[in-house]
Design a protein around this nucleic acid. Structure first.
Lengths: 224, 224
DNA sequence: CTCCTGTATTTTGTATACATTATACAACTC
DNA sequence: GAGTTGTATAATGTATACAAAATACAGGAG
């Protein structure tokens, strides 16, 4: 009996997860805007499912910080105030620092190569002028670091924090005068990790994250 | 018209939240043990509600890391491996450090007084030999610090991280030989914050958190 | 005895129905 | 006109019904 027919049974996803992913994407892409109401019946109709999986997906979005519910009124896409964003940025800067330090200790040769590839992909993506592509390449670079920490929880938390900024961050990437600095920072972080120089890598990473603060916050002010 | 009858309308809670709180408590207290199945029908019968709020509560527990669901099989109380606990501890140590630093900058006189009270309550609670009481006093002390950071997200995240350790931490508090050290550490943290000495306070806090590692991990080994 | 298979039962997944509350707006009062 | 009240409508909260999959286990084949 061949063991290669892996039986695509693992591709089953409950509708709640499909709905969750769909709504999550829509929120991150900005198709569902901060403050926009998430009405069960309407969403159910649009997605062709019943209210039950919609409700469960909303509960999940809620815990991810992407939606907010008021009892008996319903859910809406979470709005972030400038203060919220500051709070998130401080946490993210700290945890990203931690991630880099852990990566310095734990990264394997293979993961280092992966990180190197991600760094190059990012530099190449910049030529393309395609914001989505650049954003994705940036995400991949950071994910490569998270992966190298070997700390699953940290990976999850950092992905989640990034997600909350993501909606507002695209704007930051439109300003291509920042690209050279981004490239330099990625390079420095990469070098720091390769040479296992924790304080160098962590320092650059912290700056790298906090550099986004001004741009992201001004984007929030526009929203209001 | 008197404005003191605040109309207890704000005490309305959807059943999903009641169920969520109930299950959460049960898990933290150890009444629902790691690995124990959470069967909807059974829980619904026991709590006297229908499956719908149960399901929504389970989705919430899931995102808090207290439950794990396998599609079409159902949910169970999350088990933590030693590795999971290490991962959580590292994150918590880092964020608790951050919290203390932020508190050094932002704490008000009133909050300082509150922290002082919490610290004393903790010392008093130790005399009582009542583990629950001691645990609660410890929680209150740390909460007072979280409060002082003024960072709402950080408060939420730290509460959540603590929650995940809580189940395994009671054991740690049964060993009263540790009490003097705990008291000293609380005192040092308190002093550090009062004198706005970030590096002192942060350093002690980090140690304070990591000190629990061995005890908590051995508790996990027992579970297996 | 071991392994397989078929079936009954339990459990989850999803849809729908009913109850209750919030919202919008028109008619009314002052 | 400002505010209030009543009513229709729409939304959420909760329960239940039905479908589909997982599980347990008895019985049979080898």
């Amino acid at each position: 009996m061949t063991d290669r027919l892996q039986l695509n049974m693992n591709e089953y996803l409950p509708l709640r997860d499909v709905v969750f992913n769909t709504l999550r994407e829509a929120i991150l892409k900005g198709e569902l805007k901060p403050g926009e109401r998430l009405m069960e019946l309407q969403l159910a109709a649009k997605l062709g499912v019943s209210r039950t999986p919609i409700r469960e997906a909303i509960r999940m979005l809620e815990q991810e910080g992407l939606a907010v519910t008021v009892p008996r009124k319903g859910a809406e896409v979470a709005k972030m105030t400038e203060k919220d964003m500051e709070d998130v940025l401080v946490i993210r800067a700290t945890l990203d620092e931690l991630a880099v330090e852990l990566a310095c200790d734990a990264i394997t040769e293979e993961q280092l190569a992966q990180l190197q590839r991600a760094r190059k992909d990012f530099e190449n993506s910049i030529q393309s002028k395609d914001i989505k592509k650049i954003a994705q390449a940036d995400v991949d670079f950071h994910d490569a670091i998270y992966q190298a920490t070997g700390n699953t929880r940290l990976m999850t938390m950092l992905s989640n924090l990034r997600e909350q900024m993501y909606r507002y961050r695209v704007e930051y990437l439109k300003d291509d005068s920042k690209y050279p600095e981004l490239v330099r920072e990625h390079q420095a972080i990469m070098e720091g990790i390769r040479s296992r120089d924790k304080s160098l890598a962590a320092g650059v990473m912290k700056r790298h994250v906090l550099n986004q603060a001004a741009a992201v916050k001004s984007r929030i002010r526009e929203q209001e």
